[in-house]
Design a protein around this nucleic acid. Structure first.
Lengths: 244, 244
DNA sequence: CGGCATGTTGAAACGTTTCAACGAGAGTGG
DNA sequence: CCACTCTCGTTGAAACGTTTCAACATGCCG
């Protein structure tokens, strides 16, 4: 099956038996909970980062949830596979976003690198320890959950009542909104059409047709496989909101 | 418009200007964060409960988020209305479940009483204060978010790839799983067909047809408007998982 | 017992999926 | 550098499921 990509790379948690060293652990936590984006080099020097290559599995649904992560570079997808072989992508994580923060003993979704990814990895147990007695950290942790929850509810709203074209428009709009200051309105993501379709709850063909339709309307352009240029942000908004 | 039910009752937050009394506040918090179900009478005596009648608005999306709530009796729906007038129900809250726990300054969804509702109301600011320096409470608060997030992701998974019949089956299955011990497998909820449809992202007619189909298969029975009897739990599971 | 909201069913319209074929682009080796 | 190959993306036509519009049934409340 083409869509299966459950290769387990050198970062696989099951392959790592090393004990959690308290010092490195605490350092990782601090980076993890830091509000602003910490310099990449600092984190790499501290040895708290991990690399993943395209389509590599960070962790699988059901694995023991030992670590929480923060994306430094690249993008990660959280997904679930169903009995019928279809995949639902629950969320995409971009730089500075966290994942694997669940409280349950096991991960609730599978996490995979969309393209090449650099991530900060932090032992969950350590985060728990740091949280005790530190209100700021508690607050930060809560806000991570809160953010994830807001994203999920937004996703529910989209899947519940939008047409294919509206979903595609909403999707690009949301990505654009997450990248402020980008004057050129160019989205340069490693997502495949299949990734987008699985996030939107559509087939790849329908997604493609909606995209073509938007191109025909000069709302967006797709100069290359993984690049989307928003040519008419106002028009995109209108379509996303149903004023087609 | 029939579906509009934005009456604002006597509990409306905007109508209440009373200051938050520290003692009652702390008491409300304790009840709110308590793991097990506290006795209803105790809460009522403490004056920390509020009643809502059928279809009454607890709060509206965008209102200043002053309180968090916990359902004591009845059911609450969280929803969002779109420009086209359609409504997406994001979640149903049953007894012992919490809502309005967002961190943002305003509520992200509208909360309404499905039938008559008794709820515990707790000032959000008070919860924040109580959280500081108390790891147990912090943990409890986190776990509320975690639960909401898990529900939302489950919802996304359902909306993303299930057919009408599968959605209806999943819905009743989920409700049944939340009510353990019920030997008779009878769900007695005040939800209208419209409520169910808006949760499942379907029209009322499609929901109805799926229900009828399940009745025809002797999987469920609907002896009265608001009552569902699960006659074949195994069969229901099979359908919910796509082995139709 | 009306009267009205809510629920149910049918038939046509609509949008999405499925199946199938084709095109475009990236990487490889000649 | 080109041709080959393989994956990924795009388009078309028919099948399918959901929605829409309409009519009718049921149940609840005054």
């Amino acid at each position: 099956m083409q869509r299966k990509t459950d290769q387990t790379g050198p970062n696989s948690e099951t392959a790592m038996g090393e004990a959690v060293r308290p010092a490195a652990c605490e350092q990782a936590c601090r980076f993890f909970l830091e509000e602003a984006c910490v310099k990449k080099a600092d984190m790499e020097k501290a040895g708290v980062t991990v690399k993943f290559t395209r389509n590599e599995t960070v962790y699988s649904k059901g694995d023991e949830a030992r670590y929480s992560y923060k994306v430094i570079e690249g993008a990660v997808r959280l997904s679930r596979i169903f009995a019928d072989g279809r995949r639902q992508i629950v969320n995409f994580l971009l730089p500075d976003e966290t994942f694997g923060i669940e409280l349950s003993e096991t991960y609730s979704s599978t996490a995979e690198a969309v393209g090449d990814v650099l991530a900060l990895r932090c032992p969950r147990i350590c985060i728990s320890h740091m949280t005790v007695g530190d209100p700021d950290i508690s607050q930060k942790r809560l806000s991570m959950f809160s953010k994830s929850l807001a994203a999920a509810e937004q996703h529910v709203a989209m899947l519940g009542h939008q047409s294919a074209k509206e979903r595609v428009a909403s999707f690009f709009l949301a990505l654009e909104m997450q990248r402020p200051g980008d004057v050129e309105h160019t989205l340069d993501l490693p997502l495949s059409r299949q990734d987008i379709a699985d996030y939107l709850g559509l087939t790849i063909e329908t997604t493609c047709r909606a995209l073509s339709e938007l191109k025909r309307q000069h709302i967006i352009d797709a100069p290359s496989r993984r690049r989307i240029v928003i040519k008419d942000l106002r028009g995109l908004k209108a379509i996303a909101e149903g004023d087609a």
